[in-house]
Amino acid sequence: MHFPILVTSVTQTLSQTTRLRTLGMSAEIAARLRTMIEEGELPPGARIDERAFCETFDVSKTPLREALKVLVSEGLVLHRQYIGYRVAPLDLEELRATFETLHGLEALAGELASQRLGTADMVKLERRHQAMIDAHAAGRRTEYFRINQEIHQLIIDGAANPVLASVYATLMSKVHRARGAANADMLRWQESHEEHEAIMAALREPGRPRLAQVLRWHSENTAKEVLSVVERSLAESGRLVNSKTAA
């Protein structure tokens, strides 16, 4: 008499287990796609080919679509019926305003860090800088970009101002994806490398009198390139739309 209840219970348990496994896979896929988007591997406006990504991640469409729903909710991906998924475009004006604010925060961080960075902080910075040099020499762009961000964060941490750190983190999250896209430009990659050498030279100077100025200069150069890449991308997208309409 109790067998139907037992079978139902087992079926429900198996269903729940499958669902949890799918959710776990989708979370991992979402994390990997998020990194690809933020680091420029999937540029703004890029089409997300579901079949290709299912093959890449060796999964069915179910966990992939669960992951894409998460990224849609985060604003990183757009979904249109009959069209599919695309990486969300960037807002040029918001980026411009965010960078203007970041220039000031970088300079402020330099002023505070010039007084508060200790020996242990410099040891960490020197190690990460060397790791960045190695990544640059080996052509490991993604690794270089990650270490680059770590160095900026170490300087922010060295400023020892939690309010500054919080505001900086919020604003950096807004430009991180755009920076990743611009970092794909090889010329800017070399320029950024040279600018980081200048930052380290300013950090090593007694009293660090130039640190704030050099950090602001680097931030302004980065913004100029990032905004140029985004503007060019948006213009190209506009031309594509116009050409399709004309056709």
Rank of each mutant, 00 (worst) to 15 (best):
S233V: 01
T170C: 11
R96C: 03
A107Q: 12
P162W: 06
L171H: 07
Q149V: 04
P4F: 05
H136L: 10
T62Y: 05
L92Q: 14
R127V: 08
M36D: 14
L240M: 13
T56G: 00
I147F: 05
A107H: 06
E28N: 08
L92P: 02
E194Q: 11
Q12R: 12
R208N: 06
R188N: 14
K69H: 05
I37N: 01
R177G: 01
S219W: 08
N242E: 14
A169W: 03
H136T: 13
F145Q: 09
L92Y: 08
A137H: 10
L240F: 08
A27C: 00
V175E: 04
L108A: 13
Q12Y: 06
A109N: 10
D91P: 05
G238L: 05
I83H: 07
A160T: 12
R86Y: 03
R208T: 06
T56N: 07
A201D: 10
M122C: 09
P206G: 04
Q190G: 00
L33W: 03
E194V: 07
E106V: 00
R51F: 04
V241H: 11
L92M: 08
K69Q: 10
G45V: 03
L20E: 15
I48Q: 04
V226A: 08
R19H: 11
A135M: 07
N161A: 13
A113Y: 06
D58H: 14
K244I: 15
G238C: 02
A202C: 05
D49G: 02
I5R: 13
F53T: 00
G158N: 12
A135K: 09
D91T: 05
V226D: 04
R232N: 10
K69S: 11
T170W: 04
E55V: 06
L6S: 08
C54R: 15
G45F: 07
L78Y: 09
Q81V: 14
G75K: 01
A201N: 03
R51D: 15
I147M: 10
R32N: 12
V59E: 13
E94N: 09
L203E: 02
T222M: 06
L234G: 04
K61R: 15
I155C: 04
I48L: 15
A138M: 03
F99G: 01
L95Q: 10
A169I: 06
A198L: 03
L14H: 05
I29Q: 03
L90Y: 07
L90T: 06
Q149Y: 09
D49L: 01
K61Y: 07
E111D: 11
G207P: 04
K244D: 13
R179P: 00
K224M: 08
A46E: 12
I133M: 10
G238K: 07
G158C: 12
E143D: 14
R96M: 02
E55W: 04
A137Q: 12
V241Q: 13
P162T: 07
C54K: 13
P89G: 02
L227H: 10
G110T: 07
R116T: 09
V241M: 07
R177T: 06
V163I: 14
H218K: 13
L68C: 01
